[in-house]
Design a protein around this nucleic acid. Structure first.
Lengths: 314, 314
DNA sequence: GATAATAGTGACAGGAATTGTCATAATAAA
DNA sequence: TTTATTATGACAATTCCTGTCACTATTATC
């Protein structure tokens, strides 16, 4: 094999095994150890972060960095990747230990200059916004790790300013709207609940035996949500603006129906304990909504309106 | 220069110039044309997408793909990049022509197997959610292009189901909550307004002379908003929940002040014509806000509340 | 239709770079 | 001390790379 090819292949091999000895590679490539030594030095000079130790149990390893082999990206792809990484900067917490900025810098650094120019021009003209929250979620990697390795955690969780302890087995984590959430099986409720990660104040491993939740993950967990409870029926007409406002709310998706002309209606069952919440939301929609059902919800709205009136009349 | 180095350098060079001839390279590298031909063939075999045409004005070009040279990423960085790109799949429209999935595949393909394993384990346990919208925004690249190149566009824009034509000069585009927006100078209003991209139905270049808005971009455009006009002063106390709700609204950023304990206040000048808008928004915040100034705004709120009461009392 | 500019191939000799071997250090674990 | 490992240098053998030359093929332009 000619040297140039060997070098490229060696780059990959060295990347795969993170630890290896010279004679090992010599066998694999069918060349002498001396040649391997010379090649490894060249790889070093090319930027592959190699590190060696002499003596028994010594050998080479690649530092924690890995080399990405040359990849052919189209310009569009490269730009898309750049902005995808760029968007990570909006997140105050991430489940990865790295600052995304270091990855971004490397990527930017290695772009051909004309793509760099294009990116520069776009940088202040395109953005993927995530609302900035001050709430930080320090336990993301622990939660994620528990989800992957099927571990039970004992957490202190804050609800309405009160702290309580719970045993949970996380299913995964996701971020939406600037906050992180973790759906997890809660041993206290014996059911899958969603926890807000910034309200999880303390996490320790629990001694409880984990359930086998390997087949439950972020994409299929919804199946488990409640159907039972004590509910009332909601029906509300929406103007075009009303529809547009509702579209912004993910949790309404299943209730929202849109007509051809852009107007629509909300229809579905609302848990009795959520009436106040819905009342507030519907008031927020103002005259863009006309609530027709049920009386309980309308009463809730009236009551809340009266409270507000009261406040503003003082 | 030894061949192996020449090949790597050639990879970059070929990437920089997208079009070149054999003799051009031969000069640059100080080798014969024959050698260049041989090298180019090797590059081809290594996956660099080269394409050649004979005859005058012929020559080589790289297909639209570019080669990314070998980059050293740490494992954490690689994983972060993967999920950043993965998150793009939530967007129904993007200003790039590419499907992000192709970039993702390439990236994944070239990862060392152990990182691939790690990604596989995480894939269904981590997500960056953006609400899925049915509304698609087909003109994103046109708008972005206009923002970069300082062009004026004539658009048909839908408000309240009515179509109108406007001349705008885009400042940039951003996505939030699954929808795309474009702040732009509107020649009809003679001011910077934010347009929802999915409501822009038709875009054609306009003959109007562009303004010089090169120094106005997504990050500083707030500064330019009105200072003159007929305004009233807003001051409103916010509870912790109130602050969180306001943080979700980008346009409030300049008015929002947060205290150590998470509570805060809104303070700033509000154009008289926006009082109704603010009244609705503040009512939406319910008891999480206590409006203390100015009387005009409080009156606006009361009036709107009364209207609502009226509706719900029927 | 001639001309010039371009890519593409094959053969071959000379030269340059690569390789293997051997000798020898140095180091650290067992 | 022994052994497994990296590390370096020198040199001859040999592989491979390179340049040259002689072609062919294609196409834009005059």
């Amino acid at each position: 094999m000619p040297k140039s090819k060997r070098l490229l292949e060696m780059m990959m091999t060295v990347n795969r095994k993170r630890k290896f000895t010279v004679s090992e590679l010599a066998n694999e490539f069918g060349v002498s150890g001396r040649t391997i030594l010379r090649d490894l030095q060249e790889l070093s000079e090319l930027g592959v972060p190699l590190y060696s130790e002499v003596g028994p149990h010594g050998g080479y390893h690649v530092l924690k960095e890995r080399i990405l082999p040359p990849i052919a990206f189209s310009e569009e792809e490269a730009v898309a990747i750049f902005f995808a990484i760029h968007a990570l900067r909006h997140h105050t917490s991430l489940p990865f230990e790295t600052e995304s900025s270091s990855a971004l810098n490397k990527f930017y650094q290695f772009m051909p200059p004309d793509i760099r120019d294009r990116i520069d021009q776009m940088k202040r003209r395109v953005d993927f916004v995530t609302p900035k929250r001050q709430a930080s979620s320090p336990h993301l990697s622990t939660l994620l790790d528990a989800a992957i390795q099927q571990k039970v955690l004992s957490i202190t969780y804050e609800t309405r300013g009160q702290q309580s302890t719970r045993e949970i087995q996380p299913i995964g984590i996701y971020t939406k709207n600037g906050l992180w959430y973790s759906p997890a099986y809660c041993y206290q409720h014996q059911d899958i609940r969603v926890f807000r990660c910034d309200r999880i104040h303390d996490v320790v491993p629990s001694a409880l035996t984990p359930l086998d939740l390997r087949d439950i993950h972020l994409e299929n967990r919804q199946v488990k949500t409640v159907e039972d409870q004590d509910t009332v029926h909601l029906f509300a007409e929406l103007t075009i603006e009303g529809v547009q406002a509702c579209e912004a709310e993910l949790w309404l998706a299943s209730m929202l129906h849109v007509r051809q002309d852009g107007s629509g209606w909300l229809e579905g069952n609302v848990s009795r304990s959520d009436i106040l919440f819905f009342a507030k939301f519907l008031i927020g929609l103002g005259k863009e909504v006309s609530v027709q059902h049920s009386p309980e919800i309308i009463d809730g709205i009236k009551a809340y309106l009266a409270e507000l009136m009261n406040i503003y009349s003082q």
